[in-house]
Design a protein around this nucleic acid. Structure first.
Lengths: 223, 223
DNA sequence: CAGTTGTCTGACCAGATGGTCAGGTTCAAC
DNA sequence: GTTGAACCTGACCATCTGGTCAGACAACTG
């Protein structure tokens, strides 16, 4: 009847903190590349520089490591969406979201791939998170966007498909990194800039009220 | 010294054809869901309704099945891109590509997921296909698009990032199907139609020459 | 320094996994 | 209906997998 059986027991000692971190980092490497079933504890242990029994001293099972990673991920994953300001300029707010999401893909590609792997495999371990936290936040954001559209401050688009498209286009650079690199053959920073420029144009064109060949020509406010 | 050791030996007898088909279909189910390492021969055998040794009577190894699937996939995967008509109306041609690609995602989601899984894991078994066939075709298409842009028949966009975004947005509906369903909670056909409408608007707005905020103001064609 | 708690490991286990093999069964052609 | 090839299987194997465990070792505490 002890109370230590949390999903992620906060580390107490320094060693615990250090090793937990090392394990989660190694696990992120391996899980994001091979998915849950394809990853092995031996691999994770080797990457982490620990023995397999030692892994299982810190985490009760392979699945516990995986769940800990996924749970810790969702927050930072949703942060850019939460950061949309309902009182801001609609087009700029959405372009800002695109930019933040793209930066997330550049800076945390392993997290993106971990998530992609999980969803690809039917999201068996995060359906509750998707149907809960994620769905609620998306619903709210969709309502916000609908409001902007109704007010004529945004071209009429379906909010859900808009959000999906932003997820898809930004995460693509993390999830399909190998493909992108093999086709573009250029340094990552340039690819990132090219993607940002393109996506900015794409969404500005599609979202600016007055459609293609726009109506109200506002001040060309710079980024 | 027999000549039977092709990647995909064309089946001769009726039984061979039937069972090969069943195996590949089952393998597509399993591989697309769990990835190469996560899939097991026992699973594939069970789905195919055959015994495991019988699988290995038709294919020499697990990897051979996987490679056969991937090789057979690339063609149908690239077909929509090949179908772009250099003599057509640029915006319509690209919108047509988007539509075909979206239909592919709806009709062949397993193939999309198989491909996604493979690329996610670093594309260890198809780097040559990506750097060869795929890269060449993308290069050609990019050149075509650049030509259209130069002729003022398309808004100035980076062809590669345009193509990436089309892949991302369309394949998203297959690869992240679970997530899309959990958020939208509507029947697939309606989702497909909604996606098509949104993407059509998105790309028409971004590609129509004379769009928002660019230099050469072309003819403001249609709302 | 003794004792207690926390950290770590080699050896081990049961079950799964990719793959093999000797031999049995089915099938089509003679 | 005999025969040879194609088809199929149960039993088996080496290896890997997630996980356990008894006990060694380290570190803080008194």
């Amino acid at each position: 009847m002890d109370a230590r059986n949390d999903i992620a027991p906060r580390p107490r000692t320094r060693i615990q903190r250090k090793n937990s971190r090392a394990i989660l980092d190694a696990a992120l490497d391996v899980f994001s590349q091979y998915g849950f079933r394809g990853a092995t504890l031996d691999q994770i242990a080797e990457v982490a520089g620990l023995s397999k029994p030692n892994l299982l001293y810190y985490f009760p099972s392979k699945e516990a490591i995986h769940v800990t990673l996924l749970a810790g991920l969702m927050d930072s994953w949703l942060a850019p969406l939460r950061a949309i300001d309902p009182n801001g300029e609609p087009v700029d707010e959405i372009l800002g979201y695109v930019r933040r999401k793209l930066e997330l893909s550049r800076d945390y590609p392993r997290e993106s791939r971990l998530f992609a792997n999980e969803v690809l495999q039917g999201a068996p371990r995060i359906t509750d998170l998707i149907q809960g936290e994620l769905r609620d936040l998306v619903s709210d954001t969709a309502a916000l966007i609908r409001g902007w559209v109704a007010a004529g401050r945004l071209a009429p688009v379906d909010p859900h498909h808009l959000i999906f498209s932003i997820w898809a286009t930004t995460q693509h650079y993390a999830d399909f990194d190998v493909q992108v690199r093999d086709i573009l053959l250029q340094d990552p920073e340039r690819t990132h800039q090219g993607a940002l420029d393109f996506l900015t144009h794409l969404y500005r064109a599609a979202l600016t009220p007055g459609g293609p060949g726009l109506g109200e020509s506002g001040p060309g406010k710079k980024p």
